[in-house]
Amino acid sequence: MIIIPTINLTMAATIAVLYAVGFYLLLSRSLMRVLIGVVVLGHASNLLLQLAGGPPARPPIIGTDPAAMADPLPQALALTAIVITFALTTFLLALGYRSFVLVGHDEVQDDVEDRRIGGQKADPVALESADDDPPDDSDDPSSDRIASTDDDVEAAATGERERP
């Protein structure tokens, strides 16, 4: 068995390019690109897993010289990983399709609620009462708020209600 599986320069460059491209695609807004990025990253990590076993050698099938045999474990792990990546790819593909059907395009939208909070101009959401809120953005689908009937603070302070 090989003791030092130092990854050679060619393979290191390949890994670097694959990861970089995968990351680059992953950071885009188009879901299809993200998906392709995931596939590329999957290839990259499977390749890396296989390389972690050591440099090229004979297939690990009994009959060859064990000393010249490739490390079988990373192969088995990579095989499992390939299947899993495949499963995830198909799922993401379906999700992308579904998104396309529902939204009409396949770009990842920003979160509406986050944007609303980000757009608040430091208007604190008051703690004590439900009634002194800053007005919501108009694009809030549920903005037809119910008017509240709050009583007079002064009346509260004089404790009229305690009278039986």
């Binding site: 198909t90 593909l93 399709y97």
Partner: peptide
């Protein structure tokens, strides 16, 4: 089974859509 399922959904399903 998985491949058949993919064919049913991604294949026929999308075709029907």
């Amino acid at each position: 089974g998985v491949v058949l399922e993919l064919l049913r959904s991604l294949g026929s399903g999308i075709e029907r859509d």
